[in-house]
Computed example of a mutant assay.
Amino acid sequence: MEDSMADQQPVVELGLDTFGDRTVDQQGNPVSYPQVIRDVVEEAVLADRVGVDFFGIGEHHREDFAISAPEIALAAIAARTERIHVGTAVTVLSSDDPVRVFEKFATLDAISNGRAEIILGRGSFTESFPLFGFNLQDYEGLFEEKLNLLHELLKEQPVTWEGALRPALTNAEVYPKTENGLRAWVGVGGSPESVVRAARYGFPLVLAIIGGEPARFAPYVDLYHRALAQLGRPDLPIAVHSPGFIAETDEKARELYWPGYQAMNDRLGRERGWPPVTRDRFEAEIEHGAQHVGSPETVAQKIATTVRSLGIQRFDLKYTSGSTPHEHLMTAIELYGTEVIPRVRELLAADAAPEETAIPEPAETPAP
């Protein structure tokens, strides 16, 4: 008898995310923006080849990231890959238009033959607001209103809608239609209100865990499940997006990852008033926090722990942090697909396997 569809599904989906960080070459020279974009496409092609389930690209509009139009890069990736799902991490919906978001992803879905996904969020940077003429004072209202409209558009039926910050629509049809609908998630950074909003609209949840012990997000997972239940909705998948890096050994992974991590965090610190990051803090985040950095075995064990502690259905490793050269990123992707993913599934399968019960020896029959 053939296996059921449920039996064929992996224990957990395992993906990769990048923001298209501007890298350096092996001599430490900055790589051009066009080359970084081409490199990201090659990284995704490799991810597809080694068995990664999802490849996400973040949207940014600042000098340290090369990709401001992820849908175009994703279309190039979709045309060169066969099985990997492709999507954003995240689409900054507040400063985009829901109609254009639907149109772009419906097109990407066609190119990829149904492999497109959207992760919707507000983003961790605000450069897109003045760039596209939006008022930061409307930060909350823009996201709420546009999420509401996109939720209606995803039904792929005529839409009549009215809001306060965007022109109304009356019986509007949006094209192209998709063959099987679009998979859309909502990404949140730890706000209870955002978790409940995702449940209210019936979107799967992505938790961005970029610092601290992943297990501390368990209350948000519980809140999401409770909100869905109270709303009468079926349970939906939860994913985690967390940073990390893989090399052949723990020591090599830390040494290759540290320079880019330090430069990125110090640059953000100068903008946001944080103190310079220390090596001790970096090591602590690897040992006890959100950084999944190390050898394939170390990273697999930590991912499995994150999956177990939160009961999630997907884990996406943000494998880039600052200027780490493309060659090292390619090695990390290959190790992730060929060693980390099989090991994580092995560890989780062992958790799920029923314990063997010893069969007692038969008692001796007394002699007559």
Score class of each variant (00 low, 15 high):
349 A>D: 07
250 D>P: 04
309 S>C: 09
113 N>V: 05
199 A>G: 13
341 I>V: 15
109 D>G: 07
343 R>G: 06
31 V>A: 01
275 P>N: 08
60 H>I: 05
44 A>C: 15
119 I>S: 03
268 L>A: 08
140 E>Q: 12
230 Q>T: 11
304 A>S: 15
100 R>A: 12
343 R>V: 01
282 F>M: 13
142 L>P: 03
19 F>K: 08
18 T>Q: 09
219 P>C: 02
325 P>C: 09
57 I>H: 03
210 I>K: 04
77 I>W: 03
273 G>Y: 07
201 Y>Q: 09
335 L>Y: 10
146 K>Y: 07
226 R>S: 10
264 M>T: 13
270 R>Y: 05
37 I>A: 11
82 E>L: 01
352 A>Q: 13
237 P>V: 04
247 A>L: 10
330 M>Q: 15
69 A>T: 12
224 Y>C: 05
119 I>H: 12
127 E>K: 00
323 S>W: 08
222 D>L: 10
268 L>N: 09
284 A>D: 15
43 E>L: 14
199 A>I: 12
49 R>Y: 09
334 E>W: 06
205 L>N: 01
243 P>K: 15
244 G>W: 03
328 H>D: 12
78 A>F: 09
233 R>M: 05
95 S>E: 08
82 E>T: 14
308 R>E: 12
256 L>W: 11
123 G>S: 01
229 A>M: 10
52 V>P: 02
165 L>C: 13
327 E>A: 11
132 F>H: 06
168 A>C: 13
357 T>P: 02
27 Q>W: 08
9 Q>W: 13
283 E>D: 15
177 K>Y: 07
207 L>Q: 03
134 F>W: 07
76 A>F: 11
236 L>Y: 06
259 P>D: 03
4 S>N: 00
269 G>L: 11
34 P>I: 06
69 A>K: 04
238 I>E: 05
56 G>L: 04
240 V>N: 00
122 R>K: 14
25 D>P: 00
317 L>Y: 04
227 A>Q: 11
259 P>W: 08
37 I>W: 00
359 I>P: 04
339 E>R: 14
46 L>D: 05
325 P>Y: 00
153 L>Y: 05
296 P>C: 05
36 V>D: 03
67 I>C: 04
172 A>F: 15
40 V>A: 01
189 G>Y: 06
311 G>V: 11
260 G>V: 03
291 Q>N: 15
354 P>V: 01
77 I>Q: 10
136 L>Y: 08
363 A>V: 14
84 I>C: 07
345 R>C: 05
75 A>H: 02
283 E>Y: 14
330 M>S: 14
119 I>R: 07
180 N>V: 04
34 P>C: 10
148 N>E: 15
286 I>E: 02
68 S>I: 02
199 A>R: 04
174 V>K: 11
200 R>H: 08
32 S>K: 00
345 R>M: 02
98 P>L: 06
239 A>M: 12
8 Q>P: 08
189 G>M: 13
40 V>Y: 01
